[in-house]
């Protein structure tokens, strides 16, 4: 895993950042689209500002970002478009901000979804991580606020976390700029397919639920064989999610493809 140099890098000058070029609002001709998701108040906007060089205002109260912000950066010669999604605790409720976040991850098909996690509230944040991993394969956990966690005496083994989740976990302290080089590199690796994720999937102990899901999975995969997240679609149908119902009816769901079939991601945001 790419946990290599964080501790060395905490006090070294930005050794690798020569590669990072902040592009601000210039996002033309991007090679990869990156989504930035996470709970409110985890420092998502700080990460966003760091990578893009923009100065989005960050407030210390939940729900500060209610709309989507976009910016760009360049790394290793590739251009990335970064989309800061509204901070949400979950993607299963029916509020506007959650719909914006969910629809972008599902239909926007970002090349990588970076999930910013508050290291001092891991359990609560994992709720969102686990939900996102049901939708998309290509995700990175940005384990932010490591400085606060250390101050509170919380020890986190990011390698075990990464193994359990099946995706890279990068410890960072975005306010101090720590770990951001590793994060940028990992975004590059996952986006360009150098790193293949094997994401964790929800294990449910409810027989009733599993039986219902199995029935639906069979029907959905017959109609949409290429869908990478059939199980999640089945779950959403059982919850009566209107945008999934619409996407099935219109066939838009057929446009969502697994990682191997994507050539160049096209942003189709409803």
């Amino acid at each position: 895993m790419s946990n290599n140099a964080l501790s060395n890098c905490a006090d070294c000058p930005v050794h690798n950042l020569g590669n990072l070029k902040k592009l601000g609002v210039n996002m033309s001709n991007f090679d990869f689209a990156i989504a930035l998701a996470g709970n409110p108040n985890t420092g998502k906007s700080t990460v966003f500002n760091y990578l893009t060089g923009l100065k989005q205002h960050t407030g210390n109260w939940p729900g500060k970002t209610v709309t989507r912000a976009e910016g760009g950066f360049e790394f290793n010669g590739k251009r990335f478009k970064l989309v800061d999604l509204p901070g949400t605790y979950s993607l299963l409720s029916t509020s506007t901000d959650e719909e914006i976040a969910r629809d972008f991850i599902l239909f926007g098909q970002p090349d990588v979804t970076v999930i910013v996690v508050d290291a001092t509230r891991i359990e609560r944040n994992l709720n969102l991580v686990i939900q996102i991993l049901e939708i998309t394969d290509r995700a990175i956990v940005c384990l932010n606020l490591m400085d606060e966690a250390k101050r509170n005496g919380i020890q986190i083994d990011d390698r075990i976390l990464s193994k359990e989740l099946g995706i890279p976990v990068i410890p960072t302290a975005a306010r101090q700029g720590e770990g951001m080089t590793e994060l940028t590199k990992m975004i590059f690796d996952v986006a360009s397919g150098n790193f293949i994720c094997k994401p964790h999937r929800i294990k449910s102990s409810s027989k009733e639920l599993n039986a219902a899901i199995d029935v639906l999975i069979k029907e959905i995969s017959a109609e949409f064989p290429n869908l990478p997240n059939t199980r999640w679609v089945a779950l959403r149908l059982l919850e009566g999610d209107q945008s999934i119902i619409d996407a099935i009816r219109s066939g838009e769901l057929g446009n969502i493809k697994g990682i191997n079939t994507i050539e160049q991601s096209q942003l189709v945001i409803s």
Binding site: L92, I122, E123, R124, L126, N127, I130, Q131, N152, G153, I154, Q155, I156, D157, D158, I160, L161, E164, L165, H200, I202, K203, S204, S205, S206, E208, L209, A212, L235, L238, E239
Partner: peptide, 29 residues
């Protein structure tokens, strides 16, 4: 058939998973 408890069941499963993962990877003071 499934009724209205689906969401509850799902959330409980997710948090069960989250707790299990956190138990392995995190040590609190």
């Amino acid at each position: 058939e499934v009724g209205e408890n689906l969401h509850d069941t799902l959330m409980e499963s997710i948090y069960e998973n989250a707790t299990a993962i956190a138990r392995k990877a995190v040590i609190y003071p």
